[in-house]
Design a protein around this nucleic acid. Sequence first.
RNA 1: GGCCUUGUGGUCAAGCGGUUAAGACGGAGCCCUCUCAAGGCUCAAUCCCGGGUUCGAUUCCCGGCAGGGUCACCA
Length: 548
Amino acid sequence: MDLKKLAATLIPDQDLLPLGKYEEMYPPRNLPPKAEVTRLAPSPTGFIHLGNLYSALADERIAHTTVGIFYLRIEDTDEKRKVEGAVESVIRSLKYFNVNFDEGAEIDSPLNKYGPYYQRQRASIYRAFAKDLIERGLAYPCFCTEDELNAVREEQTAQKLITGYYGKYAKCRNLTEEQIYANLAAGKPFVIRLKSQGDTSHKITFRDRIKGEITVTENDQDVVILKSDGIPTYHFAHAIDDHFMRTTLVIRGEEWLSSLPVHIELFKVLGFPMPAYGHTCSLMKVDNGTKRKLSKRKDPELSLDYYRKAGYYPVAVVKYLMTILNSNFEEWERKNPQSDYTQFKFTIEKMGKSGALFDLDKLNDISKTELSKISPEDMYAFLKGWADEFGSESDKAHFADKDYVISILNLVMGIGGKKRRKDIERAEQAAAMICYFFDDTFSPVYEYRFDKDTVNAVLSGFSAVYDPADDNSAWFAKVKEVAASNGFAAEMSDYKANPSAYKGSVADVAEILRIAVTGSPNSPDLCTIMAILGKQRSLSRLAAARVN
RNA sequence: GGCCUUGUGGUCAAGCGGUUAAGACGGAGCCCUCUCAAGGCUCAAUCCCGGGUUCGAUUCCCGGCAGGGUCACCA
């Protein structure tokens, strides 16, 4: 068979360059010996999720801790699933979490010398290599229809055979020249398939940077490399792009592990050295008692918008991911509390081999801790940003009053005290937490544990002596006075020594006042709260809280 | 079902031939305390099962079992 002629008929493109040209156009990168070139290669099919962030963070950390390159490539080979605006959304979302690209699609950088970074724009490269494979007898046209393929698959399944296009099931593999041209003349659409040289009785031992040694069998599937629209499949594009973009380390989900044999053969047939691989395990969750992969459709917590809306501090999400990415991260952080997480020596070898269950408790704890470390000004900026985008009308109004909110934050965060408070997990919760400082959202629940006369006596007794000029100890001395004059123990120790002698302790008196002022039996320092509210509002709340 | 892969407390996990089997989150309790949050201290809780190899296996080997992934002209 005249393969040269066949290749020219199948791929008649005039603009294809000689293969060697591509090597010249995309020379090896001039980077230090240990520098890794990693990439994120999403398909623009929608919004990026936590799993993508997880993987992107690993890519980004490895590239940047080794002084390498992290780039963005868009795998837009599936026209049907394309979603408008997805690329911008990917970049924006990752940027929010401090994951930044050095190079690639929509990235403004002088490093962009390995593009184009959209696969659709690289069609001629793939076609040039596919043409060469046809000429070398390593690829061939396949005219099978979807129905034929399905029928074969059903037959294989019924006979408990391995499904796919291989061996005797590869109907078009041995088509004669006449048959091929007849099909072409009849206008039948075709795909280009790899003519696999593999043998499944051969095992290949492969070393994955995350999973370690993995044994796979050689590929014998005649996979599609060019679809009927002339656009490559993932497998083919992966081999060519990661070679010419000079990727040194491919980090991708473990769902790709099963197609590794295909990739091994493709690299071999193309004559490209293989990059290193690291297959990450997926984030899991428990559903109905069993563990399963977090799903984009079913699990809202997979969406990154979920964290933005709930007001998680972005660094907290990143740090949480770091703890599951590299198990020694937490220990390092405890030893280096002042250091930025980017100073941590991230290594791919430390990554776990099995899928981690997503742990919201842990995220909340990390978020609380992170938020307890920032300044009230930064906290204010963060909360206001959240309120403007996601808050209710009253949230927006509350956060507009900067000085007032900052005075609240000083209290809520424990600024000036011995220790910082750790009340705030996320912005949404912070907004709810401070709502009693605003009259429009002050919605008290007056549930006292004492009878109405006692409550009213405490309330009016304290109102009579309250002076906003009092400092904390003077304020508390007055609470004690009110306690003593209403049958409560002024000192905790007295009460503990002889509880039956009193109605209760100062703590109980403080509780009555706290319920009156904040509407809840729990709050930070009451004295400061009253100072922030001011004399008028404090007194009117004490009055309004009386029981009739 | 075939193939690949994983299996240490509830969760994330260190350890990888001999350990009192780290630590963190969560849980319980105590202390501190005007309540809450935080903090300090303490406690409960783990090597999937069965065979080997070995003086000795959580660690190595083989089987089981359980989980996960994958079997497209989707990535």
